[in-house]
Amino acid sequence: MSEDPGAVFFALSDPTRREVVRYLSEEGAAEVTATELAARLPMTRQAVTKHLAALNEAGLVAAERHGREVRYRLTPKPMTEAVSWMAGVGAEWDERLDALRRHLT
């Protein structure tokens, strides 16, 4: 099963992490290291590593070790899935709450 939509949206609720995601999305399929990211974003390498770990936990970023360095790339599928989960559950509730209103009147 894929990641929880809650974890995905929680990971994206932080503006710095959104910045990291935006940067990775501009890189397309390219892989970057925390050091490269830190050089381009206004934050330390430690901060970048921490945010990448949180994004990785939510399934939004894949990490791969190449020798001594870890390279990261965006894996956006959980975002799409989280959005379609929201749409599906939202539609279910619209229908149920209409039925509840009819039931109560």
Partner: peptide, 17 residues
């Protein structure tokens, strides 16, 4: 009604959930 699919709203937890 609130339906949430992930981290508990009662225990928001840290960045990684």
């Amino acid at each position: 009604i609130i339906e949430e699919g992930g981290a508990s709203p009662l225990h928001p937890g840290d960045a990684a959930g």
